[in-house]
């Protein structure tokens, strides 16, 4: 998927652990790990809003679009 999640970069910038973010957001650590590792299929606006609020950043700081080089592949959606 050409959408890259830069949550780990923002966490490093804010010197915050994933567990702390998970506690403050009220989301389980496993769900946040899914987002961090790029396995997530979608993100709710409410979750994005919380992340941006806690990390004091913009959605663009968390999500990045990187075009794929090869021919476009469908993932079955």
């Amino acid at each position: 998927m050409p959408i890259i999640v830069n949550l780990d970069v923002m966490l490093a910038k804010r010197k915050m652990q994933l567990t702390e973010l998970s506690d403050r957001m009220g989301i389980t650590l496993s769900n946040l790990s899914i987002l961090k590792t790029g396995k997530a299929k979608a993100i709710r606006f409410s979750s994005l809003e919380l992340i941006c609020e806690i990390l004091e950043c913009q959605p663009g700081d968390i999500l990045e679009f990187v075009p794929e080089k090869g021919p476009k592949q469908s993932d079955g959606d």
């Binding site: 396995k39 997530a40 299929k41 979608a42 993100i43």
Partner: peptide
């Protein structure tokens, strides 16, 4: 099943 799995991977 597909929709359920997608929902599980929605944060």
């Amino acid at each position: 099943v597909e929709i359920y799995n997608e929902n599980q991977l929605t944060i």
